[in-house]
Amino acid sequence: MCDRCQKTLLLKALLTNLKLMNKVPLFPTGPIHKVEGTCIYLTGNDIDTDRIIPARFLKCISFDDLGKSVFADDRIEQKGLHPFDQIKNQKSSILLVDKNFGCGSSREHAPQALMRWGIRAIIGQSFAEIFYGNCLSIGIPCASISESCIKSLTKAIEFKPELLFTLDIDLEQIICEHQSWPLKIELGMREMLLSGKWDATTNLLQEKEQINRIKNSIPYINDFN
């Protein structure tokens, strides 16, 4: 191998490594027990998926660029005052919300956009069903919290935005240095997160034969198709 080839190869390997390094810690993988980081609070009920990621950004064949467009319209409207634009929140990974967060469309672009912005867990009073499922399927825990707790929690971060929190899936708590708040994480979601089974595809394919048995027993596929 000539010098140049060797150099190119080395460079390539280096690049892949860099890419991997960037990629590996980027998105959730395997069992998830805890999410750590600072919190960002977004107030308001019924925040729908069209607001999380306006439809014009859905024209993509990969999710890679969605992070920067999250809440695009709300952010334009609020001219830099939107929580997602405030400097103190730029490294936050735990999103606090109010009621019925993520209502609207079934598109996974919304949780994907949040995840690509940096969100790794969401705590709120309630979530829209499809959004909730979509979050789980990419390894973003959604935990519910009471109205009074979210009030005291947001007070704490208002007072000290750099406060570090640990969302403990097993204990169903969000914990900071001197304080903790109870959360509710549905048993199903908790088990899926803790076991790593939220990565559904692998799990579903375990019973391939049973799938085919069911397929072969369905009247509209077999009896009068």
């Binding site: 024209k59 990969s62 999710f63 996974e108 199903g188 089974k197 069911i214 369905i218």
Partner: peptide
């Protein structure tokens, strides 16, 4: 009729008889 098996956490693995796809949510 479409139940394949029960999964941990109270979910069901369900067979889908008709899957419709379009250009926005399928590429990924």
């Amino acid at each position: 009729l479409h139940r394949v098996r029960e999964l941990t956490g109270g979910s069901t693995q369900l067979f889908v008889g008709l899957h419709l796809i379009h250009e926005v949510t399928s590429p990924q």
